[in-house]
Write a protein that binds this DNA or RNA. Structure first.
Lengths: 199, 199, 199, 199
DNA sequence: GATGAATGAGTGTTCATTCAT
DNA sequence: AATGAATGAACACTCATTCAT
């Protein structure tokens, strides 16, 4: 890789980073190319040279982001730890991206970005499927629960806990996170208080 | 009520209805006053006569909507049925509004509407608090779980189930809804399969 | 005049008064019919019933105003006092209308009102001509000065002094007004300090 | 200065010129950005790129205009001529801007431009103060007249004479201008007919 | 390759005026 | 006769995108 390519890569990174931060803070709809360009220290025209359209910039940025995220998740999943520890680690990771995840999770508007969000979701589902499989195999998840239901449940729950971890106004993080994990594993009625495989 | 007032009320209803539908379908950011006006069979200027600004229209519409919704919920909550039946009824009602709820739930952008969403959320929290109280009193919810955690949990869960009910591509609604309720009450490990108060 | 006509006349007076005040405060361009109607305690539609257009309202209002003003001026002019005293009295009267006069004096824009302002100006010129004639006859004004020049000069000077009288931030009203009158009669070089006819 | 800057400067000049002409002809209130843009051969968006708001365009234009005007005045004031000749030269210059001056002089409406007009007026006052000082020093102006009064008087008088010079319907320009100058120096009673310092 | 500059197509909002009651 | 309500025609301003340098 020569000097030109390197500089180009660096600029693309800056643009991705600026887009990510601004989307996380304000959502897709309330930011404009000028803002992204300013924060990335390039001109708007440069962004168009690289990505063609604003939507395409978002698509590329999302693609880059989801791939690196999935890679980190997979690393945890294939590591040598108990299911519960893996869950906790992944959730902690999620906490870092929770604001951004909230942004991209519920957007089903006219934006052409939406079509791309579907592919992000698919990649995430593939991962969560592996997670569910592991959980069932290790006896942490009742086998008669359908995968489809569990997928939705995992995603929502992860957001929920990550949101709590990330909430800076929250004083009882530790306690509440533990309670949420308990809700996750044992439900509202809480027939059991400390978790070990039920098999 | 004379003829003027009656027609005005009717038009306001039309405008609220058009706004609601469009927000539900496309979100706050992707619709313009012209569209709302067209769908409501009025001119944009009429909307400004009534509401002054676009934001104010949204605020009024949300206020109207949340009040009627809370009223219906309260009716169910104070009815003479078991906790589980109440939950199911409320969730079924939610299913009708799920798309709209998804829209307004995650929006924390620069829009001045946001400030108003907080008050919507507060009204909802008041209701969910009552729901949690009832659940604890009737023995369906473990008393050592903090209210704060439960509030978030309830809201998320309701959305989750309602989303399933509302998902038209879904074939196994009945079965999946039942599974989700089970997850809700008894968690991932599913120590118990049929629910009756644990007290 | 029956009760109906009386009420109509009263409303027209209210509308004239509201228009006058608002034009004096904000100028022709920055006030709207709604504002005038509100201040006059009528509906905008009523104004249109009476005057047809906004411009026509202004024309009627100006006409009414200038006629009453000219009437008062003429009364002073035909009174039995010295020229200097008459001048002072008229200037004092002007002070009350100075804000309004400033408004209408310099407006030569696209407004159709302009065409009417010309007729206001004509009426004023007729009066000022009489004033000049009196001044020349009584020996206060050098006869070799052309009427045309004197007309402009009088109008400007009246505004200038009236403006000083009306300026509430001004501490030395008395002194400054006297100086201005001196400038008027004897000019910058002030060859004379107390004025008596030079004939 | 590279090609970019040069073209930008040229366009700004065009925009200033177009704004100036239109304001002079129709006043601030009756012209829109589209019109200015059309006359300046740019798009409205370009104007917003440069100036941000319509008001800001006016402010910038006025600032540019007053500075160049003051510069020309100062040149005359510091030149090596008699007071009367300086006065005549400045008045002749004013005649070129009289329409525009009439526009900006009396506007005290709700427009945010007004706040800026104050600073224009201040710059003019500084200049007129110098003029008055010179006149007093050279014995053309009676020293017991207050500066405050003289400032207003000068401004009004300049407008008056300039207006006459500029009035194309006027046949006797020469004669009338001379009469007005006489009124200025020696007042209505005209105790003196040819002007030389009275000291 | 990078960018300063320019713009067309909207978007929220205002307001004189009309119309049905 | 009076007015509540409705609207068409503007207008200030934004922003994704293009283009000449």
């Amino acid at each position: 890789m020569n000097g030109f390519e390197e500089r180009t890569k660096k600029k693309i990174k800056q643009i991705f980073s600026a887009s990510f931060d601004l989307v996380a803070e304000y959502g897709f709809n309330k930011i404009n190319v000028q803002e992204i360009a300013t924060r990335a220290n390039v001109s708007p025209a440069t962004i168009y040279n690289y990505f063609g359209t604003k939507d395409n910039l978002f698509k590329s940025m999302l693609n880059d982001w989801i791939d690196s995220k999935i890679y980190e998740y997979e690393t945890i999943l294939t590591s040598d730890q108990s299911f519960e520890v893996k869950i906790k680690e992944i959730i902690t990771m999620e906490a870092d991206n929770i604001q951004f995840l909230n942004r991209i999770n519920k957007i089903k508007d006219r934006s052409p970005v939406h079509s791309f969000l579907v592919s992000v979701e698919e990649k995430l589902e593939v991962f969560f499927q592996k997670l569910v499989d592991t959980g069932k195999m290790e006896g942490y998840i009742s086998k008669h629960l359908s995968d489809r239901v569990l997928l939705t449940h995992f995603q929502l729950f992860f957001h929920e806990i990550a949101h709590h971890i990330n909430d800076h106004t929250n004083q009882n993080k530790e306690e509440e996170t533990s309670q949420l994990l308990q809700l996750f594993f044992y439900g509202l009625s809480s027939c059991k208080l400390s978790g070990s495989p039920s098999s």
